[in-house]
Amino acid sequence: MSNNVIKKEWRFNFDFSVASGETYGRFFKGLNDKKIIGNICNNRTFYPPKPFCDKTLKPPDAWLECDGAGIVEAFTICCEKSNGVKFSKTDKKPDVPYVLGVIKIKDSEHCIIHFISGFETKDVSEIADKIEIGMKVKPVWATKREGEILDIEYFEPVI
């Protein structure tokens, strides 16, 4: 790089406000009340609920509710802090290393990506051995809930 250069910096800074619509709105209200809302759409079951069937684009048919128990389908163990968009006022992400799991709730045809905790160890390889694909997990509710996905603090194994 020639020395006739100059380093500069600027920021991308925007404020957003987005609508949830009824379907997601019901789901987030359910979280506030420690419930997992789902729905049936074109006779397939979804937790979280689906706003429309992506094949027919028709609205969902019926609402469902459950306690959120499910199974782990995949995971990774995050060893670096995720510096992402600040969605909630306080940073509710667990300390590193933490497990980010893919969880299928009940008979949902969709999965949800969330934290899995409750392993006594902080050693990455030990955590990897403790997690089985297909193991049962259930949600652990935050004490202070605001109707957002992090009202579930994390999922923990069902022993």
């Binding site: 250069v5 910096e9 800074n13 404020d15 968009v85 969605f87």
Partner: peptide, 28 residues
């Protein structure tokens, strides 16, 4: 039609820096 009583607004923002090194013509 949607039951808008369930609608909820999510407020958030983006704030991320971008760094660049400008070449000779910009420098001069």
């Amino acid at each position: 039609m949607q039951d808008i009583s369930y609608n909820k607004r999510f407020e958030y923002n983006w704030d991320v820096p971008f760094k660049v090194t400008l070449g000779e013509s910009y420098f001069r």
